[in-house]
Amino acid sequence: DYEVGESVTVMDGPFATLPATISEVNAEQQKLKVLVSIFGRETPVELTFGQVSKI
């Protein structure tokens, strides 16, 4: 299970290999909103559970 505030690594898509912090969890739809730090700015990205891995 994923929790808000948890650190994960993006495994898929254009942000693969980047660390991210979970900002929202939708367990019903198996989706997460995460904040990816790009060029010093936090960018919100919506991903599925399968696109991230716990650190």
Results as ranks from 00 to 15, higher is better:
residue 36 V to Q: 01
residue 16 A to H: 05
residue 26 N to S: 07
residue 23 S to V: 15
residue 41 R to Y: 10
residue 50 G to A: 14
residue 38 I to C: 10
residue 3 E to T: 12
residue 34 V to W: 01
residue 19 P to Q: 15
residue 54 K to E: 03
residue 26 N to K: 07
residue 7 S to Y: 11
residue 11 M to C: 10
residue 28 E to P: 10
residue 15 F to M: 05
residue 2 Y to R: 02
residue 53 S to R: 13
residue 49 F to C: 03
residue 52 V to W: 02
residue 33 K to A: 05
residue 3 E to S: 13
residue 43 T to R: 07
residue 5 G to Q: 03
residue 5 G to N: 05
residue 11 M to H: 06
residue 29 Q to T: 13
residue 35 L to W: 09
residue 23 S to Y: 15
residue 14 P to E: 09
residue 36 V to D: 00
residue 13 G to H: 04
residue 14 P to Y: 07
residue 21 T to S: 06
residue 38 I to T: 06
residue 3 E to P: 03
residue 35 L to M: 12
residue 2 Y to W: 13
residue 31 K to D: 02
residue 8 V to C: 05
residue 33 K to G: 05
residue 23 S to R: 10
residue 9 T to P: 01
residue 16 A to Q: 08
residue 36 V to L: 10
residue 12 D to S: 14
residue 21 T to W: 10
residue 42 E to C: 14
residue 37 S to V: 15
residue 3 E to G: 07
residue 36 V to W: 00
residue 18 L to C: 11
residue 25 V to W: 03
residue 47 L to N: 00
residue 16 A to L: 05
residue 5 G to R: 03
residue 27 A to G: 09
residue 8 V to E: 00
residue 10 V to C: 04
residue 5 G to M: 03
residue 15 F to L: 05
residue 35 L to C: 09
residue 46 E to S: 07
residue 5 G to V: 01
residue 14 P to T: 07
residue 52 V to S: 01
residue 52 V to Q: 00
residue 46 E to G: 04
residue 19 P to F: 14
residue 44 P to K: 13
residue 32 L to T: 00
residue 40 G to C: 08
residue 27 A to E: 11
residue 48 T to P: 06
residue 43 T to E: 13
residue 2 Y to G: 01
residue 18 L to M: 12
residue 27 A to K: 13
residue 21 T to V: 14
residue 47 L to R: 01
residue 16 A to F: 05
residue 45 V to P: 00
residue 10 V to E: 01
residue 13 G to A: 02
residue 41 R to T: 11
residue 40 G to D: 07
residue 40 G to A: 04
residue 44 P to H: 14
residue 26 N to F: 13
residue 13 G to K: 02
residue 18 L to T: 04
residue 1 D to M: 15
residue 16 A to Y: 06
residue 53 S to D: 06
residue 44 P to S: 15
residue 32 L to M: 08
residue 39 F to R: 10
residue 35 L to Q: 06
residue 55 I to T: 11
residue 4 V to W: 04
residue 51 Q to K: 04
residue 10 V to Q: 01
residue 13 G to L: 02
residue 20 A to M: 04
residue 55 I to S: 10
residue 31 K to L: 13
residue 1 D to A: 13
residue 37 S to A: 09
residue 20 A to K: 02
residue 33 K to R: 11
residue 10 V to I: 15
residue 27 A to W: 14
residue 10 V to A: 02
residue 15 F to S: 02
residue 9 T to G: 03
residue 15 F to Y: 14
residue 48 T to Y: 12
residue 31 K to F: 08
residue 54 K to L: 06
residue 24 E to Y: 11
residue 29 Q to N: 09
residue 46 E to D: 08
residue 17 T to W: 12
residue 47 L to W: 01
residue 10 V to N: 00
residue 26 N to E: 05
residue 40 G to K: 03
residue 30 Q to G: 13
residue 33 K to H: 08
residue 47 L to M: 07
residue 12 D to F: 15
residue 51 Q to E: 06
residue 51 Q to A: 06
residue 19 P to S: 15
residue 33 K to Y: 09
residue 2 Y to Q: 01
residue 13 G to T: 02
residue 18 L to I: 06
residue 34 V to Q: 00
residue 5 G to D: 04
residue 3 E to W: 13
residue 5 G to F: 04
residue 26 N to Y: 14
residue 11 M to A: 07
residue 40 G to V: 03
residue 54 K to R: 11
residue 37 S to Q: 12
residue 43 T to C: 12
residue 55 I to R: 12
residue 28 E to L: 11
residue 34 V to P: 00
residue 12 D to K: 09
residue 9 T to L: 15
residue 5 G to K: 03
residue 13 G to Q: 02
residue 32 L to A: 01
residue 11 M to T: 12
residue 12 D to Y: 14
residue 25 V to Y: 04
residue 48 T to F: 12
residue 14 P to R: 08
residue 7 S to T: 14
residue 19 P to E: 12
residue 33 K to E: 05
residue 44 P to E: 15
residue 25 V to T: 04
residue 39 F to H: 11
residue 34 V to A: 07
residue 52 V to T: 03
residue 25 V to I: 12
residue 44 P to C: 15
residue 41 R to M: 13
residue 53 S to K: 13
residue 38 I to N: 07
